[in-house]
């Protein structure tokens, strides 16, 4: 009987782990720290960034907006949902429905926030909803990058996300409904295949090769205050996904993993 219980527990663990493995909601634009104001392209793609693998179909997002803050000015929110145009994004193994838009920025911080429609993972009979933040800066004058934006689940940076040299650490605090999530599981992936916005596809060439599968998707647990720390080993984009932050959350009567994602881009010191 004991043996069966173990087997069942093993299955349950397996089932719980699989739906969230390596899925990353991306808000992609080539640069995070712009020297000056510019019109920037943005692509919303739900994929597996290290391997440029299976790209999931995105539904129409529930919310997509930007919060601009500069210096001590009050942050200002602009809705961008209506600006989204549907596109098809090509991975190395398939194509999936995605979205694109562009936005003119001036100076200061621009926090792009995406609340996607939950994605149904049929094999697991469960949904995934990754509420995602991307913080862009124009000109170097900071704004309110360190403040929560009020998403139901979010990662709030404790280190300025757009000033990270390679070798620095990135720290974030995981929040669910405004409160720190002690021991939150955070998965980390490197954007290993350059997104080519003109072709709406990942580049075939990988930047690095993982010596073993564990390195594709790194894992860190947050401490008792919901804070995690990651040493940045390489220049480029890194995605952080804090998983299943509201374990009882459901969507259309089924389990829904409510995840918080943030992206940073580190730069070589040279």
């Amino acid at each position: 009987m004991k043996k069966i219980t173990y087997i069942l527990a093993g299955f349950a663990l397996f089932a719980a782990a699989v739906p969230v493995q390596a899925h990353f909601q991306m808000i992609y634009t080539p640069e995070m720290a712009l020297k000056e104001g510019a019109k920037i392209p943005l692509a919303l793609v739900f994929s597996h960034p290290f391997e440029a693998g299976h790209t999931m179909d995105m539904g129409k997002p529930e919310e997509f907006y930007v919060i601009r803050s500069r210096g001590e000015n009050e942050p200002q929110r602009t809705d961008l949902l209506k600006t989204l145009q549907p596109i098809t994004w090509t991975s190395l193994t398939n194509s999936g429905k995605a979205w694109e838009t562009e936005y003119s920025i001036r100076g200061g911080d621009y926090i792009f926030c995406l609340v996607p429609e939950p994605y149904y993972e049929a094999e697991e009979e469960a949904y995934i909803k990754q509420e995602t933040k991307l913080i862009i800066n124009g000109g170097g004058e900071p704004g309110a990058w360190m403040d929560p934006v009020g998403l139901a689940v979010e990662i709030v940076p404790l280190a300025k996300p757009y000033d990270r040299w390679v070798g620095n650490v990135f720290q974030g605090r995981v929040l669910a409904n405004g409160k720190p999530v002690a021991g939150a599981e955070v998965e980390i992936e490197y954007l290993n295949h350059e997104p080519m916005l003109d072709k709406k596809a990942f580049a075939k060439k990988a930047a690095v090769e993982a010596p073993q599968d564990a390195f594709v998707l790194q894992t860190i647990f947050a401490d008792d205050n919901g804070v995690f720390t990651f040493g940045i080993p390489r220049a480029g984009w890194w995605g952080f996904a804090a998983l299943d932050l509201e374990p009882d959350y459901t969507y259309k009567g089924k389990k829904c993993s409510r995840d918080a994602v943030i992206w940073i881009k580190a730069v070589d010191m040279k």
Binding site: R70, G71, R106, E141, P142, G143
Partner: peptide, 21 residues
């Protein structure tokens, strides 16, 4: 930084690198 507003006006936005006004 200054920006041409496209309506014959120009807006300059200033600040300091530590975020002060």
């Amino acid at each position: 930084s200054c920006y041409d507003n496209g309506d014959n006006t120009v807006t300059c936005e200033g600040g300091f690198s530590d975020g002060s006004s």
